[in-house]
Simulated scan of single mutants.
Amino acid sequence: MTNSEAPLGHCYSDAGLLKQALTHRSAGRPNNERLEFLGDALLNLLVAEFIYECFPKASEGEMTRLRAALVSGAALAQLAREFDLGEHVLLGPGELKSGGFRRDSILADTVEALIAAIYLDAGWEACRSHVRNIFAERITSAQNMGTKDPKTSLQELLQANGLPLPEYELISTSGDDHSKTFEVSCAVESLAMRDSGSGTSRRAAEQSAAVLLLEPVRNMIAMRKKDRKS
């Protein structure tokens, strides 16, 4: 990827900054760990501001749950896949061999690092503008479903259409006791749909998985209704 290309919609003037943002720690130094730290803080602030503006009647708890869903590891990894970032991440031999370019945690960290790189490359307003562009459709979807948490929204969507409730299953846990990561699958068997999410608790991982299925399930139900009418 050259500096003329635009991951997350930004053309970088500093090619070295872009390369650093795409370099995983397994590939040596300089890598994107410090950028990831800054990008995480920027994303939380900018997405919180966006939610605050878009949901003037939402409570603190509702806004907190929505922000957590939008910037969860699974949600950011999905965003990375939409931008095909995995093929551009620079990995060490071990991570490359084990398929690290597909791993949610690495993809999510790369998104955070790129957000920080945009900020350092072009300043606050450019970073804010790009974050809003990236999350606009997601915020719109959240407005359409209300400010309920993703698990509740998915459950109510299925119930309203006479379909069985989703099933959640713990796939794995990793990390030290004080910093565990949980991966959970969410399955809507009646629609043959399944996805997985990760989080720092089982509940957070379930929310991450649910948010990834909400729109696909909504679209599938709408498609079925349309087919029955035709």
Rank of each mutant, 00 (worst) to 15 (best):
L191N: 05
D176A: 11
G175V: 03
C186K: 01
M193T: 04
V188M: 09
A205V: 07
S179W: 05
M193I: 04
F182G: 02
D177I: 12
F182M: 06
E189C: 03
A205M: 07
S179A: 09
S196Q: 14
D195T: 10
R203Q: 13
G175D: 09
G197T: 06
S172W: 03
R203L: 14
S198E: 12
S185I: 02
E189T: 00
D177M: 14
S174K: 12
V188D: 04
S196C: 13
S185N: 07
G199Y: 01
S190G: 09
R203F: 00
V188Y: 01
T173V: 11
D195R: 11
S190C: 11
D195H: 10
G199Q: 05
V188H: 06
M193P: 08
S201N: 09
G197E: 00
L191G: 04
L191S: 04
M193L: 15
A192R: 15
L191D: 02
E183W: 04
G175N: 09
S201H: 05
A205H: 01
T200S: 13
H178V: 05
S190Q: 08
V184C: 08
A192D: 14
E189Q: 10
M193F: 02
S185K: 08
T200Q: 13
D195P: 07
V188F: 02
H178C: 07
G197M: 01
R194C: 11
T173W: 07
S198Y: 03
M193S: 12
L191H: 02
S174Q: 10
D195F: 02
V188K: 10
S201I: 07
A205R: 02
T200A: 11
T173I: 12
S198T: 15
S174T: 03
A204T: 12
S172E: 10
S190I: 00
A192S: 15
